[in-house]
Amino acid sequence: MKIVVCVKEIPDPDIAASVFQVDEAARAVVPVPGLRSVASPFDEQAIEVALRLRDQLGSAAISLVTLGDETAKAIVKNGLALGADDAYLLVDEAFDGGDATTTARALAAAIRKIGGVDLVLTGRQAADDDAGIVGCGIAEILGVPAVTFAMDVAVDGGALVVERSLGDGSETVEAPLPALVTVSHEVGKVRPASLRETMKAARQPLTVGTAADLELTAGDVGAAGARRTLERLAVPKNDVRCEFLAGESPEALAATLIERLSAARIL
């Protein structure tokens, strides 16, 4: 079984809101000191799903693909340290100014180029754009079925069996391979990297590709191929003032809180 996991480098989503800043003129996040770059958490869970499938099947070739800057090497190395076999880094100025459409095009082209891929895994969304578009987009471009919001993924007699999360429960969906699955947080904890794999990963070369390597033209990717324009990026105003309730006892505090909420017609 050949698995490709798409991963994205993002600014650490755990950064405190008090430190986070955007440059409104540049429409970009300000790289404030201490803001680390990390792999999007859902993508790490997608790697975990690939590793669990390898555990289940006994063997599987796992490749990582990322579109980003040279700095994405670090998160890709981390994925290799978790047990992925090889990695492809798509870096090209031609990709700049793209959107979900152009990202899906580039990743789909890379997956085609790798060839013979049975399963593509992505996070259910990246934890910076919070959009959840690219995964299904790749599936549409490749013409394979997509199953979203996976909590559990297994292979049963050559078909994929996915437990997918719904608002009020879950459903079991079967799909033929090749297919694409987007992974949700219910997958749970990600295994730690082993020392042996980390040492191996450090020495492992990455395959670096450009738009031309993927036979994509300038009109397909980057700003030229984008289907939308970012007009503004801003930090929303937080004008909430907290009213601290006073009371002698828990009972008095509880009564005051319920009164306040009733008076404000919240209850």
């Binding site: 986070f20 996040v29 919070d130 959009a131 289907r227 801003a234």
Partner: peptide, 17 residues
């Protein structure tokens, strides 16, 4: 307009299609 960066920012986008 939509929230992004985990609600720490919001973006406004237009469409070319």
């Amino acid at each position: 307009t939509r929230p992004c960066y985990g609600g720490k920012a919001e973006e406004t986008v237009s469409f070319r299609t």
